[in-house]
Design a binder for these strands. Sequence first.
DNA 1: AAAATTGTTTGACAAAGGTCAAGCTGTAAA
DNA 2: TTTACAGCTTGACCTTTGTCAAACAATTTT
Lengths: 249, 249
Amino acid sequence: MNIDIRMAHLFSALSDDQVRQVMESSHTGTLKDGESLFETGDEANRFFLVIGGQIKLFRVSSNGDQKIIDIIQPGNTFAEALMFMEHPIYPVSAEALGPARVISFDNRRFLQILSESIDVCFRIMGTMSQRLRGLIKEIDDLTLQSATTRMCAMLLRRMEDVGAKQFTLPAAKGVLAARLSMKPETFSRILQNLSTQNILKTKSNEIQVLDEDLLRSLAHLESIYGLEPEKPCALKGNNVSIDLNQKTG
Amino acid sequence: MNIDIRMAHLFSALSDDQVRQVMESSHTGTLKDGESLFETGDEANRFFLVIGGQIKLFRVSSNGDQKIIDIIQPGNTFAEALMFMEHPIYPVSAEALGPARVISFDNRRFLQILSESIDVCFRIMGTMSQRLRGLIKEIDDLTLQSATTRMCAMLLRRMEDVGAKQFTLPAAKGVLAARLSMKPETFSRILQNLSTQNILKTKSNEIQVLDEDLLRSLAHLESIYGLEPEKPCALKGNNVSIDLNQKTG
DNA sequence: AAAATTGTTTGACAAAGGTCAAGCTGTAAA
DNA sequence: TTTACAGCTTGACCTTTGTCAAACAATTTT
């Protein structure tokens, strides 16, 4: 199993020799489903590269709820931004979503390499700046948008990733619900409503989009891409015909 | 008006000569209250340093609401993270909150300097990593916490900044409300409730904290710092004795 | 100082989501 | 295959926050 870590953007500018150096301080491990990698508040002197499975980053509220901040896919690094802090502490917890394989790297060692290569610095800064953008977008979603909007945006993203109107949900429904900051019940009800409106068909974890345009207008994509605010559309966003609690019918 | 831009963390590692170079491509400007600096979606080839007043960064939803992402104080830079992207686009809009003075810098020129100084690179990465941490914390607040919690956390932060139990709100109430992702009405009602509970006294924009402990437990600080979840406290967090809508009394 | 503007508070109400409890389904173990 | 368990769905109900409208306050303009 000779993996070239240069598949990760972060490492892509390293020379053969530098890769060798980095790998020296690395450690490859396998995680079982649900196994923890680190927790919020732990001292952070390593960062990670996912090479198989998925790692979920999350925070836990005082009442036990968890909000999933991100789900890291193979080929991606995470927690590398902490390297530059004085007393680095993981701001989130990380655990495997299903069985997973990760490589961990020593911050100090990597900083050393960094200090010799402006090129690698620039990569890192690029990665970090993308991540910043992603988080701002996330805040956007959370504050400016309703649960239905978030759901539709997620479905569209998935549809575009897969490139087909029919696809499987990328994780268990409960997990997706947490990712979208809603309860499983709400998730379920929204899907149910989208079905009723003939916007999509669902069969267990299979989704088939029937009315892409409607889905798209529910997802309010204008706001994300900064286009015109008011669209001449029968359903306008939140207070759509979609009724979550259609009281005793 | 000879300002040393090295007061900003970002520039603090520059040599005299580098400062001169950076300043060459800079432009200092004054903004009136509410004047716009750039808008979401604009091409981003400059970044900024606030030297007077405040700049608010915000996003606008399709129904016209604005969510304030951050309020930048004098001495701080913003939008510098975009410098590392392919086709940089401002992800937020920026405008002056009251009269303000800012210096803007050319991305390309600064990147050039950056490519000569690893030291400055490290500063930038430090700044970015702090900002990442801040945003994660923000997402936390937004999803895991109630409006009352956010309000209390803000008041405590302000109290600690000022170093006294009595202080002035750092901006108009409406602005603070947007910063905390709530409506002005909600903001008003929460303050009103905290008063009723004798947790604080308010007189226009002056706040006096009466019961710091209570305020602190309402702010749920445990979750932020990752301490024990359940505190043996009469008021536990959200569904506290504090009743927002104390039905027809 | 009076008028106009802008920001804040209050009340009645509506809507979106959360909570709790029960029932259902599908996979995995026995 | 039956059993067991985790995950999903559904219904009834509750809480939080938003909405709209009106009153009030505080500034600013004239």
